[in-house]
Design a protein around this nucleic acid. Structure first.
Lengths: 111, 111
DNA sequence: ATCCAACATGAAGACATTCGCAAGTCATGT
DNA sequence: ACATGACTTGCGAATGTCTTCATGTTGGAT
């Protein structure tokens, strides 16, 4: 087994632990986007967006190339879409679990 | 679409962005573990483990119950296992992509 | 060819959050 | 009551985020 394996996994999730970066990946999993297109959708400062893109580039989750005057980004691994979907499923499950725990602690719907 | 949705997803990934917590979830996805059992496998301070368990409890990803003198933890949503698996797959893909990029940038590096 | 405007990235700073170690608290079983 | 195991709290250190300013690049206008 690789020694720093859990570290690598943690780093991977860490790159996903930001609203803007998730938003970027969701947009890119639909189709490629230029930077100014992302800017119109995400509503953050250009330099901030560039920073988040740099994080995603550093981990090779996205790649960029120039096309005329603009820079176009695309996801490097298509399975990213599956991961975001799986996360959504679990998130829904977690909300359900939280609801159960809540009603257990406050049994207002029990006769 | 829910407005603070990306925030919720980011929080979710943030709870996964830690080596110890990933390790915990992997162990718990195999079978339930008591705290002292986790301690034997993970090699961190007890107080630190307790902190990480608290984080996982706060997000309802794990649940705990007393059984005699021990406290036993278990995952609350079984799909967590699927997520960890998906993450592993993507991680392997990313490493492959990184290898490609590396050989593109330094073609003479590899014979 | 030169200049200009829009686009994209980078660096440095203040600011907030998180991590890990240390002690202390609480509960349980013998 | 004692001992053990589990959990919380507080503080310094480290990390991450966002804003401001500066740099570089492309394409078109003068």
């Amino acid at each position: 087994m690789g020694v720093p394996l859990y570290q690598a996994k943690a780093e991977f999730f860490k790159t996903l632990a930001h609203p803007a970066r998730i938003r970027i990946l969701e947009l890119l999993s639909e189709r490629d986007h230029a930077v100014h297109e992302l800017l119109e959708e995400i509503d953050i400062e250009p330099s901030n967006l560039s920073q988040q893109l740099a994080v995603l580039r550093r981990t090779s989750m996205v790649v960029s190339h120039r096309s005329g005057g603009e820079v176009v980004y695309s996801v490097s691994v298509p399975e990213v879409r599956d991961l975001l979907l799986a996360a959504r499923t679990i998130l829904a499950g977690l909300i359900a679990v939280q609801g159960e725990l809540e009603s257990e602690l406050a049994p207002s719907h029990r006769p």
